[in-house]
């Protein structure tokens, strides 16, 4: 089951080739086939290794021109799996080549889900959180640190994801389903992501009431009372309201414009 064997020298070379060919995935992103062209090019190291005549190579390239879309940072894991399948297909004439695309389609959805929440939702947010405070202080380290914090894990996942996908090859789907790995990673990533976004919301969304009630001679600033109940209550409520409106199908751009209007009008009449 679990493939603990070391890769051969030639396989390591293949892994490096897959890594380097994976970067152009979205160069020609389009509506018709999304990332297909980039993906097919990314399969070339495997195709040229396993198929020696032109007809087979053409057939394989064409096979991978099927519509494809996943999170770019995790694509090599799928390339790795497909590489193992192509190897099998090239050695075993009775292997049904339709399986290759079926497995790819089965993987690209879950990987897009995990990849988006890990890379866009969590890693990027952490990198922003750390880079931002430095940038706000005017330090050039801010953007540099942001890029490093994002891209070091990005490169590691890009390379080792390929190795991992290749090793698991045909068995990954069975195993993934048996032990529910996909669901577990997805659930874990969601928990971390939600907590990080929660923390970022608290630290970055700014909304304070400048209302002051006057009862008798006493002036009561609204914000002080709110802080005693729940600090940062207003940013929290506003974010949840935004979430609710999006959920109801309101367009993000409309909400942005409304938010700007609220900011301007609110500060003009002096409530925030």
């Amino acid at each position: 089951m679990s493939d603990k064997r070391k890769l051969t020298k030639d396989e390591k070379k293949l892994m490096r080739e897959i890594f380097w060919s994976s970067f152009m995935l979205e160069a020609s992103y389009n509506y018709e086939r999304q990332q297909a062209l980039g993906y097919s090019i990314g399969m070339w190291p495997a195709i040229k290794r396993y198929y020696k005549n032109e007809k087979d190579r053409a057939e394989a390239l064409e096979r991978h021109m099927n519509i494809f879309n996943t999170t770019p940072h995790v694509v090599t894991t799928i390339t790795g799996v497909a590489t193992a399948l192509e190897k099998e297909a090239s050695e075993n004439p009775s292997f049904d080549k339709k399986i290759i695309n079926n497995v790819k389609i089965g993987l690209m959805g879950p990987f897009a889900g995990i990849g988006d929440s890990l890379f866009w939702g969590t890693l990027r947010i952490i990198a922003v959180g750390i880079g931002l405070s430095l940038a706000q202080q005017g330090s050039i380290l801010g953007p540099i640190l942001f890029l490093l914090l994002f891209n070091v894990p990005h490169m590691l996942v890009r390379y080792y994801g390929g190795v991992f996908g290749y090793k698991f090859g045909t068995k990954i789907m069975d195993q993934a389903n048996n032990s529910g790995i996909m669901q577990k990673i997805s659930k874990g990533a969601t928990i971390v992501g939600l907590m990080v976004i929660g923390a970022m919301t608290a630290s970055m969304v700014k909304l304070e009431s400048s209302l002051v009630f006057t009862i008798g001679d006493e002036k009561i600033p609204m914000q002080e009372y709110l802080d005693q109940i729940f600090p940062l209550l207003l940013p929290l409520l506003y974010t949840i309201l935004m979430f609710y409106l999006l959920k109801k199908g309101m367009k993000p751009t409309t909400i942005l414009l409304v938010t700007i209007a609220i900011g301007i009008i609110g500060s003009l009449i002096g409530i925030i």
Partner: peptide, 12 residues
Amino acid sequence: VAGGLLPAVGFA
């Protein structure tokens, strides 16, 4: 003020 509020849309 709106600048402080806009991240809420992003997080949502």
